[in-house]
Write a protein that binds this DNA or RNA. Structure first.
Lengths: 140, 140
DNA sequence: AGCTAAATCACCCTTTCGGGTGAAGGATTT
DNA sequence: AAATCCTTCACCCGAAAGGGTGATTTAGCT
């Protein structure tokens, strides 16, 4: 950015110097003032295009689409915090027993939660639940 | 694009006309030729920037990252066509029985396929298989 | 204080899944 | 022709998942 501005100023200075030089060498005397101005206009249009592109060149960094929880849908379906938690672990491929261990509750509790989840998500298998939950952006 | 070029030419013509007009009105007589050229240079630098940005403005359409099958990984794990097919249906939340019906084979066949899949994917549950398959881009 | 939703757990029963083994037929390769 | 791989199917068994009902405790809201 700063370098570009400096370069631009330098280029302009050099150009004016060249013009002066040419003028003294009587080379441009043969040309009309309009042609002269036209040439300058064209050259600096090019310079402008170059400068403009340089200055606005975006350094695009491809970043993965970050997950934003769809809380509206979560509320609409009436899924509780605990159920959502279970849903998340389910999506990570854990068995009900493993989920129970992780949350320090009994297997029956997890079964109840998952049953309620299936009702609310209107599915009948955990793979479907995971799939639907991802579609609705309830889980990453 | 075409319109921009026409506009540019038009602007240049108008500018030259204005210059001529001013010249005749003896207004620019007071200024040195260097100042005159500098002004033209500055103005057309601006025009160049504008034109450059106009011409290169990208109409970016956000398109979802399309799925490309990771055939290398598929071969590396030695997953057959049929197994891959079963894996896809599994990821869509179908039960083994439903997959069997879809592929017109017996339930036992699907069980064999899924068992082999779990071995090859090094998992023990279908949810894990689906998760891993998605990570490895074996399925959308 | 009373109501309600959430979370917890239990018991029952059925279905689905997963693991292991075996085997037959077809296609491809060596 | 023999070896190998894929696909298909069968049977058994145990583990996991799913469906239904009911009950208790806790927390939040009116």
């Amino acid at each position: 950015m700063k370098r570009t501005v400096i370069l631009y100023g330098l280029a302009l200075a050099v150009f004016v110097f060249v013009l002066k030089f040419l003028e003294y060498r009587l080379i441009i005397r043969d040309l009309t003032i309009e042609f002269y101005v036209g040439a300058v206009a064209l050259i600096f249009t090019g310079v402008g295009i170059w400068a403009g592109l340089k200055l606005t060149r975006k350094h695009v960094v491809m970043v993965g689409p970050e997950f934003v929880l769809n809380e509206i849908e979560l509320q609409r379906l009436g899924i509780s915090k605990r159920e959502h938690e279970v849903l998340g672990l389910m999506a990570q491929g854990f068995s009900n027993q493993q989920i129970a261990d992780k949350l320090f509750v009994s297997l029956n509790t997890i079964k109840t939660h998952s049953s309620n989840l299936f009702l609310k998500l209107e599915v009948s298998r955990r793979t479907q639940a995971v799939q639907k939950a991802k579609e609705l952006r309830l889980i990453p």
